[in-house]
Computed example of a mutant assay.
Amino acid sequence: MMRARLRKVAAFAGMAVLIGLSGSVLAGDFEGKWLLDDTSGNPFEAVLSSDGTASGTHGDSMKHGTWKEENGAAVIHWNTGWTTRIFKQGNKYMKEAFKPGASLTDKPTNTSGASKKD
């Protein structure tokens, strides 16, 4: 009886570790440099760092923010108030932009493709 209980506890712990690893693998997929388009269609580069910080070139200025993996997507909260969501759709990545004050359940202000740079 005690051994069966220990096996269940060990199995549960093993599953918890695997779930934790799968989340970090997903987050690792988003770390790095991304080429995105702003709401006017102008390209800019966003860098998602492993420490949860984000930076991006936007015209002549730099913007900064934080990011994390949420529900299989990278969600970036910029210091400008904008939010960017990068996610995989089929075999390609997409970007959605949300204006200040909008939530991720609102209609995006802009949607376009996204590509990860090596």
Rank of each mutant, 00 (worst) to 15 (best):
V9S: 05
N79C: 00
K95P: 02
G59N: 04
G90Y: 05
L36T: 02
M2P: 06
A46W: 02
A102D: 07
T80D: 08
W82I: 05
W67E: 10
G28I: 01
V25E: 03
V47K: 13
N91C: 02
G23R: 14
S50E: 11
T53K: 14
F98R: 00
A4C: 07
D38I: 03
R7S: 10
G90D: 03
G72K: 12
L36E: 01
T66K: 13
T80F: 02
H77K: 14
T80P: 02
A46E: 06
K92Q: 13
M62V: 09
A54K: 09
G59T: 01
F44L: 14
I86R: 08
F98M: 06
A74P: 02
S50L: 03
L104H: 08
K95C: 14
G41A: 03
L36Y: 03
M94C: 05
V17F: 03
R85G: 03
V17H: 08
K8C: 00
Q89M: 10
F30D: 05
K117A: 11
N91F: 12
N110W: 12
R3D: 14
K63T: 09
N110E: 07
R85E: 09
E96W: 00
M94I: 05
Q89T: 07
L18W: 07
S40E: 13
K99D: 11
A74D: 05
K8S: 13
Y93M: 06
E31N: 12
G28R: 04
E31M: 10
S24C: 07
G14M: 09
G41K: 07
T57N: 15
W78A: 02
K63V: 13
W78Y: 08
M94E: 03
L6V: 08
E45W: 06
G101F: 03
N42I: 09
G28S: 15
T84G: 13
T83M: 04
T83W: 01
G20V: 02
G56D: 10
L26N: 10
T111E: 11
S22K: 08
R85L: 12
D106S: 06
G32F: 09
K107F: 01
W34H: 08
R7K: 11
T57I: 06
F87K: 14
P108L: 07
P108E: 01
K95V: 15
T84P: 00
N42R: 13
A4N: 11
S115W: 10
D60G: 09
T109K: 09
Q89H: 12
F98I: 01
M2C: 02
T105R: 13
G14D: 10
G90L: 02
S22V: 09
G101A: 06
T53W: 05
A74Q: 05
S24L: 15
G72R: 10
N110A: 15
V75I: 14
K33V: 09
N71I: 00
D29N: 14
F98P: 03
E70M: 09
N71K: 13
E31K: 15
F12S: 15
K107L: 07
D51G: 02
L36V: 10
W78F: 03
G20Q: 01
E96M: 06
E96P: 00
F30P: 04
A54M: 06
D106V: 10
K99C: 02
S22M: 11
F44D: 07
W67H: 12
S40F: 14
K92G: 01
